[in-house]
Structures are given as structure tokens and as C-alpha cells.
Design a protein around this nucleic acid. Structure first.
Lengths: 214, 214
DNA sequence: TCCATACACTTAACGCCGTTAAGTTTGGAG
DNA sequence: CTCCAAACTTAACGGCGTTAAGTGTATGGA
């Protein structure tokens, strides 16, 4: 009795088409252009049809976020192979920053917009798996740094380290997204800011006294 | 002939009442509750009356931002008196962070939301005056740090330093605002994160090799 | 084979939103 | 007293997210 299966397949297909359309709108027309009506028009269904697949618009956005979080994790591919954990950390920082600049609308949705607390995480991302969970990936790198004694000896809390490194890099990216066209500030080039912050922060974390220069 | 003056005074008064109402809504009901209609209801005028004083809703928000930027600068009062520029820098960081946590809706509007580029700055804030312009205040502190040789000698670009220090602190604050109720991460207490990041970054900037601990 | 039904989907509508067009009131100038 | 300009209102437009009610059709059971 493959009928039920076929039905489910078709339903999942439409669900996917909704997400694809939403993502296209996001990329092509920006944050505010993503409306239920426009998504519907793009897939040639009525707006209410979307509600058969998602409870609210917010759920569509959350699903998009999920995909984007996995995409972000994908941006880290290859980095795990670098032998030096400090190099890994730098490379991860660059990958993160590059992701943010390449997909500012997604980044804004993922990291700059408050969302209602997520339901107990049935988020389709395997939490803790570095291939899907970027935060876990970052913690993995920092664990190596700590275990190899690269950081100052009092720095042992990997969770805290991860949150702070993340915050720093997020700071540069999100200011760039929100404020880059604000002429109040005589902005240095983004890449300079990003590299400089990462270098300075690493200098502050590393055990050795001699400043590294990339 | 004080009639014209009286008229202007009354007009300015209503303008102020609009801003006050908008700010109240902001604080009491949050970001999305600030609508033209609710502002109007609060001051007991019709919604269209607002358009006699502001061209668009965005202009109201920009005016609010202006006030908030001055308020932020006010948060730094007293810090300028501290003799040690490093202490000033730390204190400024704390003041900034405290402002962000106390007024998350304002902070979100000021620093986490992209705005159309501002018109040639008739923004009512005296750019460069540390009492009104927080960015100038930060640059002042960093200029002192550089001139007193407290930073590593290759760090001379005060503009870059300001942008990077700001980015770091903004990172912690904005992640807190956007993500604090996200259970994916096992958050360390906010104050710990903020202090740790500031300390680590300062360690990376300072000339001396011995890590400072606050 | 025919019918009842479950389900995917649509049409129409509600109550919001920012904003505009077209009146209405009113107070001071001539 | 009249006229005008400015301040303000009412009514409306088009768009938004979302819901209620109705339609058509494929399907499983008789």
C-alpha cells in the first residue's frame, strides 16, 4: 500500500518547495520581502495552502534557519583536517565571517533577531555533531587548544572560551551588517577589522608572550 | 509678535509627546508594539496627525535613536575623570554593556537593525563631542592609551582600535539580546562572558606581557 | 460499481499595519 | 467680517499574517 507513502512524499515535496521559494525571496529581495503571500505566489498556490505545511510564518523561518545552520557548519568543511588547532581556530573564524558577509539576510535571521524559545529542540540538527553543529565544532577546536596547553593555564572552561570567541567574531560581522552604511564612523575595511580582532583576542588567550602575526 | 513662536512651541511640544509615547510603547510593550496607530492612541490624536510632525515611522525611530545615542553617551558620565586610561576603557565597556542590557529594545534598534543611510547627519548630536558622541569618547580613551605607550607599539590606528573594541563588546551584548533564551548553548553568566572577553582582548592589546586580572 | 469520507486546497474575510487623499475646523491677518 | 493657511480628522488603499468556511477529488469500503 504505497499510497500513503506517495501522499507523504508529495506533501514533503511541497514543503520543500515552500522553503525553496522562501529562500529565493530572501536572497533576491531581502528580509522584508519574505511574506506568506509572495511565497505562495512563487509556488503558484494560495497563501492559505502554506498553513497546511507550516503552522505559522515563524515556523517557516525557523526551518530556514535550521537549513542555514547546517549550511554554516558546511562552511567549515576541510578545516578539521588542519593539524594546528590555532590555525583551525583562525580558519574557522574566517569561514564564519565569510558566511556572514555572503548571506547577510540569513545571518540577520539566524543571529541578530530574537526568536521565541525553541521547542525542546526537534531541530533536525544533530546537536554535538561537529559536521552539523557549528558551536560543537568550535568547542572541539578550543578543546584541542586547551589540551595542548596553547592557552594561558587559567583558561580551562571551553564553553566559556567558545562563547567569547564566538561573541567577538559575531561582533564584527553583525556591526558590518547593521552599520556598514553608517557614515558616522570612518570604517576601516571589514577584513582588516575582522583579522585584527581575531589576532588581538588570540594574543590575549595564548600562553606564549610573543605576539603572533598572521 | 509672539504668535508664530507660540505656534512653533506647541508644534515642538506635540513632537515631543509623540516621541515620549513611542518610547513608552517601546519600553512597556516591546519592539513590535511601536506602531503609528498605538502612538497616536496614546497621545489621543488620530494616526495621521503624526505625519504632520514626522514624514514616516522610520523618522520617528531615527529620532528615538538620536535620543538614545545621547543617553548612551550620558552613561559614560564620570568615567572621563578616571586617571588610568585602561581603567577608563574597562569602565566604558561596563557602562556600554549595562546600557545594552537595561534597554535591549533600544539597543536592538540602535545597533542590531539596518537603517537606510542617514541624510548627511543633521542628527542633533555634536559629532566628535565626547559628551554626546560615544564613539568619539571611546576614541579619546584609546588615544590616551596609545599616547601613553600602553599598547603594543605596532597598534597606532586609534580608529581601528575603536572599531574593534566596540565590535567585541557589541558581540557579547547583541548575542545576549538575540540568543539568551536559546537553549542550544549552555550559556555562562553574561557578566562572566563580558568581563572575560574584555580582559582577553585587553591582554592581546597591551604592551606588557604579564596578564592583568581585574 | 458506487458512495461516503478524508484530505488538499481555495475563496473570502478579519483585524492589523504604514501611508495618502480629501475634507473639516479654527484662529489670526487684512 | 471675510478669507486663508495651518492643524487636524475621517475614510480609504494596498499589504500583511492568519482563520473560517466551502469545494473538489482520489480513495477505501460496501
Amino acid at each position: 500500500m504505497g499510497i500513503k507513502e506517495r501522499r507523504e512524499r508529495e506533501k514533503a515535496e511541497l514543503r520543500d518547495r515552500i522553503l525553496v521559494a522562501a529562500r529565493e525571496l530572501f536572497v533576491e529581495e531581502g528580509f522584508d520581502a519574505v511574506t506568506m503571500r509572495k511565497i505562495a505566489e512563487r509556488i503558484e498556490y494560495s497563501p492559505t495552502a502554506l498553513y497546511l505545511h507550516f503552522e505559522t510564518k515563524d515556523e517557516i523561518l525557523r526551518a530556514l534557519c535550521d537549513e542555514d545552520f547546517r549550511a554554516l557548519a558546511g562552511h567549515f568543511a576541510g578545516i578539521a583536517a588542519l593539524p594546528d588547532p590555532i590555525e583551525r581556530l583562525r580558519a574557522a573564524g574566517h569561514a564564519y565571517v565569510q558566511f556572514g558577509l555572503q548571506f547577510p539576510n540569513h545571518y540577520r535571521l539566524m543571529f541578530m533577531t530574537p526568536h521565541p524559545p525553541q521547542e525542546a529542540e526537534e531541530s533536525a540538527i544533530a546537536k554535538g555533531d561537529p559536521d552539523q553543529d557549528s558551536y560543537a565544532f568550535l568547542k572541539g577546536i578550543l578543546t584541542d587548544c586547551v589540551e595542548q596547553g596553547l592557552f594561558r593555564p587559567e583558561l580551562q572552561d571551553v564553553e566559556l572560551l567558545a562563547q567569547v570567541v564566538w561573541a567577538a567574531v559575531h561582533g564584527v560581522v553583525s556591526i558590518e551588517i547593521a552599520k556598514s552604511n553608517d557614515d558616522w564612523v570612518d570604517w576601516r575595511p571589514f577584513a582588516v577589522r575582522a583579522d585584527f580582532l581575531l589576532d588581538a583576542l588570540l594574543n590575549g588567550l595564548l600562553a606564549g608572550t610573543s605576539p603572533r602575526k598572521a
